[in-house]
């Protein structure tokens, strides 16, 4: 495979729990793919096929014991957990905190103006995180995932819990303003135009197989 420094490259990469012990376990079969800079990749697979683990490995939140994984991006990672911000802070305070962690100068007003297209964003902005609905939390999480300085955005089932109106508005923002980001999205099924496949760029699909599949 030929690759540039901004490509994400996996060659027979595999996570192995308890390597060389009786409890040795591989959540997924060895994975090989190459994702070019600014491209979009869907990783699809059934429950338990290891999508989240693979995404965490690309984010350097866990290690790969076999094969090779190369990526030189700053990563923004959105997990599928429902709660990923501080409960006692409002949406705006959380956005300021998390963007400030890595990206100390950002244009707050520009961000607010951009995301106001999303119907539930304004309400989420001024509500304490623990009082936000699942959808409002997801909007805030997605806002931070894209506005943060990382050039590789990893999204674990990102539109879960969002209604179609909010989801379409978010996809619209991504289509308009974040074409420079490389994106990997996990999903259970092949994306369709009416769900989360409405991005205005071509995408590739990698089907992840669990070891027993």
């Amino acid at each position: 495979m030929t690759n540039s420094s901004n490509d994400v490259l996996l060659e027979d990469a595999c996570k192995v729990y308890g390597k060389d012990t009786l409890e040795e376990f591989r959540p997924f079969a060895p994975v090989s793919f190459q994702l070019k800079d600014k491209e979009l990749l869907y990783i699809i697979g059934a429950n338990g096929s290891g999508k989240t683990t693979l995404l965490r490995a690309i984010a350097d939140l866990t290690t790969i014991e076999e094969g090779r994984l190369t990526q030189n991006h700053d990563v923004n990672f959105l997990s599928s957990n429902e709660s990923q911000m501080f409960d006692q802070l409002t949406g705006l305070e959380n956005i300021k905190y998390f963007l400030g962690l890595r990206n100390q100068s950002f244009d707050q007003q520009k961000i607010i103006n951009r995301w106001q297209e999303v119907p539930a964003f304004n309400k989420a902005l001024h509500t304490k995180y623990n009082l936000c609905s699942k959808g409002m939390k997801r909007i805030l999480d997605l806002c931070v995932a894209f506005e943060d300085c990382g050039s590789l955005v990893l999204l674990d089932e990102p539109f879960h819990g969002l209604d179609s109106e909010n989801r379409d508005a978010i996809i619209n923002i991504i289509n308009q303003d974040f074409l420079d980001k490389t994106i990997i999205i996990t999903a259970q099924n092949i994306p369709s135009q009416s769900t989360d496949g409405a991005f205005n760029r071509s995408y590739s699909i990698f089907e992840l197989k669990g070891v027993n599949q």
């Binding site: 965490r56 984010a59 939140l61 923004n76 990672f77 957990n81 709660s83 990923q84 911000m85 998390f98």
Partner: peptide, 8 residues
Amino acid sequence: GVLDRHLI
């Protein structure tokens, strides 16, 4: 639930 965000 914000540990991951800080580990990256």
